[in-house]
Design a protein around this nucleic acid. Structure first.
Length: 866
RNA sequence: GGGGGCAUGGCGGAAUCGGUAGACGCAGCGGACUUAAAAUCCGCAGGCCCAUAAGGGCUGUAAGGGUUCAAGUCCCUUUGCCCCCA
């Protein structure tokens, strides 16, 4: 308890006080769950330690904290940890720009962010903190890599990769945006051929796709996004031989084998190995020039749909597998080497992209499907992609297109020129990064033995300290001879370490497993601990991780389950994707410059402080460039963490975007002050929460005075509504509204009998505890409540307390509401009908007519239909 | 282009299985307290219309249509916005 000025609410005084006490007493240390005890794993996506907490973090962690606190009150053993996604480029960029050591920079950021997190009053067990850049963590990331390597799921291959010329590193496809720019540096990404490490996620594609259906606790749209990303399509692989009956040829994948007879050309990726042998001498120059140009542009650029499809004929041709006619071969920008077989068959009549390509290059269009089976009189003016009946297709004419695919595939199969095939959009996961500040890949390259794993007992392969990091020139580790030079663990000869580090998504794809057993030095986690806590009951984070982080985590969880290292195959049972925190933004429409809100004098008529021009206003995600960021520290300093928490929860439902509004923050602060005064008045009148409390549940509601009964009803309505709001869909906004209603209903609290007062106040403080943990704890102690408010039991609902002698009944006439009458709360249908018919409202609106039909909804309404 | 979602007062948002639309809050207005202001407390409040008033009527959930005793909620069409994939 804090002494100063007891009648006023001073959050700054009480919050630090209670944070200190909770920590000292270990209130939030995860209890070892007893046998049979219900466990609950509440997890927030751990942050990158950038050094400053922003409002998006606050929203994320407050949501998870409310859930964790509520589960504790409901008697569960709760795991609610926090950690740091601590490898990554910003630390390295800081090293380049300011010469600081990435490790020092990261540690300092973690310290300051940890302090900021503490000031929010989160019920986190800090003893379980996990930091991915610490050797005692990344030792196990390396071990995980070696497990994958041992099963052939980590492998090296030469690949055309996305090269970021600014950050001097390779990027995964997912890290390149639609405009072909790096997600981090914003640079135009180039394509290069490099030998890189990959993880075989495609081997798990079917399982990852099929099990999405079972993730009923995930938002539909996240599951859809993952399904699209995996992109399974069924079709056929078809071989176009160079000549018959020759063996060799070009294989294509198509989802439309039914259009095979419409093929008028073939297109290869410029990088396809067959390009040289199919290029005629007179086309050699044009082909070479085109390939050189393609090497400079990214995959996204090449396939962008709004630009013309460019290509060059090679001069050579292949043979159609069924018609045996010659098919000319082209190369074009829109075919990518790593996609399918790197070659597609061109069917301009039935594919929009092929039609566009054929039109601009004068290639013939051959219609083989028509809606009614009749041949078309005129050449089509666009591709027909719908179903129909085959024409011009040799023996397949008249067959429905849906049935034709398997028939044609079977014919090809018989000829040894094709087979059914399932194709995925998902690629294997490229994890090599030519950077310093990441987890070293524990591999040694030996002239004789090849890629040799570092023996498990030699892990971790420590990241060397004191390394000079330059802006350009690839991996800093590669030039570190004393580090890279080692003996081969197999043959003992001089060998060289792998100098690439891992994609940080690798580190963040298993951290939730480490939390269950964070200090284990013998293994990544014990099976006992991991199986006791996994899967995560509630995962909370931003929707920006809907694809990558969540898919990678699912993949590694499945892999470890296959290794019998854990029992669950899916890591996250329920997922909540919280909306962005937005703030008001001002922009001068003429200059397109953003104006800081502080510089705008009159928000009702916002004008440019320099020119006086009127400004556009809208809500956008907080960011430095838009000058609209709100610093959580300043909000906490001014109003306290409890107000910030309440505001964020109340202002919008958790999955929707939230518009920051200072006036609403103020309003929330006022509510907490009002609550404080309310409880203070109760205390001043001698109210306490210690000692034996009378059990009101046994006393029938009708024996209480009307006021006692009203207050009890408000108490139990609050229990019912708030429990419901926190049960299935997390509706924190309406839960806070119910707390306000409850408080408003206690205006005459002091006139109620002591037992009713005590029940109301204790209930109010316990229901409030997950939302405003400091305020509720302080008031609980002022009233001499036993122990901590956070160690109480969630109040249980007394149905009888909700009962009312009379309730309003809506009278409708012909479905239109005409008013209400008071009826006994327990009246049956017949009584309700006769009361409704006898009412003044019925008399007025029916004017003596007898209703033809009467609909009675007990407890709600009676509808009279004349 | 394909897939998914959303649209409710001046604003953020409520509304269980179709059953009094606008809970709760912000902003606003009126009153009390005060020398005054702030703070606090009490009250009003979707729109339009009638009435001196008490009160009453009509209308209203992007637009249009449908199902139903009853539609913000279900179905169809249109428009606008957002997200994902191309």
């Amino acid at each position: 308890m804090v002494a100063a000025d007891p009648s006023r609410y001073h959050p700054s005084a009480i919050e630090a006080h209670w944070q200190h006490i909770w920590e000292r007493e270990g209130l939030y240390r995860t209890p070892p769950p007893r046998p049979g005890e219900r466990t609950f794993y509440a997890l927030s996506m751990f942050p990158y330690p950038s050094g400053s907490l922003h409002m998006g973090h606050v929203r994320n962690y407050v949501i998870t904290d409310v859930i964790a606190r509520m589960q504790r009150l409901k008697g569960a053993a709760v795991l609610h940890p926090m950690g740091w996604d601590a490898f990554g480029l910003p630390a390295e960029n800081a090293a380049i720009e300011r010469g600081v050591d990435p490790a020092d920079w990261t540690e300092a950021n973690i310290r300051s962010m940890r302090d900021q997190l503490r000031s929010l009053g989160l019920s986190i067990d800090w003893d379980r903190e996990v930091t991915t850049c610490h050797p005692d963590y990344y030792r196990w990331t390396q071990s995980l890599f070696l497990r994958l390597f041992a099963r052939g799921l980590a492998y090296r291959k030469e690949a055309a990769v996305n090269w970021d010329p600014v950050d001097q590193t390779v990027l995964a496809n997912e890290q390149v945006d639609a405009a072909g720019r790096s997600w981090r540096s914003g640079a135009q990404v180039e394509r290069r051929l490099l030998r890189q490490w990959f993880l075989g996620i495609t081997r798990y594609a079917d399982g990852l796709l099929d099990d999405l259906e079972r993730l009923q606790g995930w938002p539909e749209r996240v599951r859809t996004m993952q399904a699209n990303w995996i992109g399974r399509s069924r079709g056929a692989e078809i071989r176009f031989p160079l000549a018959l009956p020759a063996e060799a040829g070009i294989s294509v994948f198509t989802t439309r084998p039914d259009t095979l007879f419409g093929v008028t050309y073939l297109v290869l990726a410029p990088e396809h190995p067959m390009v040289d042998s199919l290029t005629s001498t007179d086309q050699a120059g044009a082909v070479e020039a085109f390939r050189a140009e393609m090497a400079r542009s990214s995959a996204r650029e090449r396939t962008a749909e709004d630009r013309p499809k460019r290509g060059v004929a090679l001069g050579g041709s292949v043979v159609h597998p069924l018609t045996r006619q010659a098919v000319p071969v082209w190369i074009a920008d829109y075919v990518l080497p790593e996609y399918g077989t790197g070659a597609v068959m061109g069917v301009p009549a039935h594919d929009a992209r092929d039609f566009a390509f054929a039109s601009s290059h004068g290639l013939p269009v051959r219609v083989v499907i028509s809606e009614d089976g009749q041949a078309l009189a005129d050449p089509p003016d666009g591709a027909y992609v719908g179903p129909g009946v085959l024409i011009n297709s040799m023996g397949f004419d008249g067959v429905a297109s849906a049935a034709a695919g398997p028939l044609i595939t079977a014919a090809l199969s018989a000829a040894g020129l094709g087979a059914e095939k399932v194709q995925y959009r998902l690629r294997d996961w490229l994890i090599s990064r030519q950077r310093y500040w990441g987890c070293p890949i524990p591999i040694i390259h030996c002239q004789d033995c090849g890629a040799v794993p570092v023996p498990e007992e030699q892990l971790p392969v420590l990241l060397p300290r004191g390394v000079e990091i330059r802006a350009r020139g690839g991996s800093p580790l590669a030039s570190l001879e004393h580090w890279a030079a080692v003996d081969c663990p197999c043959c003992g000869k001089a060998a060289r370490r792998e100098t690439d580090t891992m994609d940080t998504f690798m580190c963040s794809s298993w951290y939730f497993l480490r939390y269950t057993d964070p200090r284990n030095s013998d293994s990544a986690f014990s099976s006992e601990a991991v199986n006791r806590w996994m899967g995560v009951d509630q995962y909370v984070g931003g929707v920006e991780h809907a694809i990558l982080h969540l898919l990678y985590s699912r993949f590694l969880t499945r892999f470890l389950a296959d290794q019998n290292l854990l029992q669950v195959r899916e890591p996250f049972d329920r997922l909540l994707t919280q909306g962005m925190v937005q703030a008001i933004t001002y922009r001068n429409p003429a200059t397109r410059r953003y104006i800081a809100p502080a510089a705008v004098k009159d928000p009702t008529d916002p004008r440019d402080p320099e020119t006086g021009e009127p400004l556009d206003t809208f809500f956008e995600k907080m960011s430095k460039s838009k000058h609209n960021g709100i610093d959580p520290n300043s909000v906490i300093e001014r109003y306290g963490a409890d107000t910030a928490r309440m505001f964020i929860l109340f202002k919008a439902p958790p999955e929707k975007d939230l518009e920051w509004d200072d006036a609403d923050v103020e309003g929330q602060f006022r509510f907490l002050q009002r609550l404080w005064r309310q409880i203070d008045a109760f205390a001043a009148a001698g109210g306490r929460l210690d000692g034996q409390r009378e059990d009101l549940a046994g006393i029938p509601a009708r024996t209480l005075s009307p006021l006692d009964r009203d207050i009890r009803r408000a108490t139990h309505v609050a229990i019912k509504e708030i429990s419901q709001d926190l049960e299935d869909a997390y509706q924190f906004n309406t839960a806070v509204a119910e707390l306000m209603k409850f408080s408003n209903a206690l205006a005459d609290l002091g006139k109620a009998q002591p037992a009713v007062q005590q029940e109301a106040v204790a209930t109010l403080l316990i229901l409030l505890a997950p939302f405003a943990p400091h305020l509720s704890e302080e008031l609980w102690h002022r009233l001499h409540g036993p122990g901590s408010v956070h160690s109480q039991r969630w109040p249980s609902l007394d149905q009888d307390a909700l009962s009312q002698d009379t309730i309003p009944l809506v009278i409708q006439v012909r479905g239109r509401t005409r008013g209400t009458i008071q009826v006994p709360g327990n009246a049956d249908r017949a009584t309700l009908e006769s009361l409704a018919l006898a009412s003044d409202l019925a008399g007025k609106w029916l004017q003596g007519a007898r209703p033809r039909r009467v609909i009675v909804v007990p407890g709600r309404l009676v509808n009279l239909v004349p």
